[in-house]
Amino acid sequence: MTSVVKCPTCGNDVVWGETSPHRPFCCKRCQLIDLGEWADEDKHIPSNDDLSESDDWSE
């Protein structure tokens, strides 16, 4: 059975299988847009820790 998901960038339908090499994205362009958003820190994983660059990481 083949599943169909929505591309997280543009919302187009994507077949979840070998025929869609960029899944869950519909194409390389949408994949790169998402990567750029992570690189620009527009997207992030929420955390309860409030760490800054000045915090000591050696502990």
Rank of each mutant, 00 (worst) to 15 (best):
G17Q: 03
K28P: 01
V15S: 03
D34K: 05
I45P: 03
L35E: 14
K6Q: 14
D40P: 00
G11P: 00
V15K: 07
S3N: 14
L32G: 01
R23K: 07
P8K: 15
L51R: 13
G17N: 04
T19I: 06
V5I: 11
D13L: 11
D34A: 10
P21E: 03
T2W: 12
W57F: 07
Q31R: 12
N48R: 05
H44W: 15
S58M: 06
D49C: 04
N12R: 11
I45E: 12
D40R: 08
P24M: 11
K28I: 07
P21R: 00
I45D: 13
G36V: 01
F25Y: 10
S54M: 15
H22L: 06
D50E: 12
T19E: 12
D42W: 14
I33Q: 13
P8T: 11
A39P: 00
S58F: 10
V4W: 13
L35G: 10
L51Q: 07
E53I: 07
C27Q: 01
W57D: 06
T2A: 13
D13P: 02
S52C: 06
D49P: 01
V14P: 02
E59C: 04
I45L: 15
W16Y: 15
S20G: 03
E53S: 11
K43R: 15
S58K: 05
P24K: 07
D34M: 06
T9H: 11
W57R: 01
R23P: 00
A39G: 09
L32Y: 09
K6L: 09
I33D: 08
E41M: 09
K43D: 12
C30H: 04
C30K: 03
W16Q: 14
P46A: 13
D42L: 13
N48M: 05
E41G: 09
V14I: 03
E41N: 12
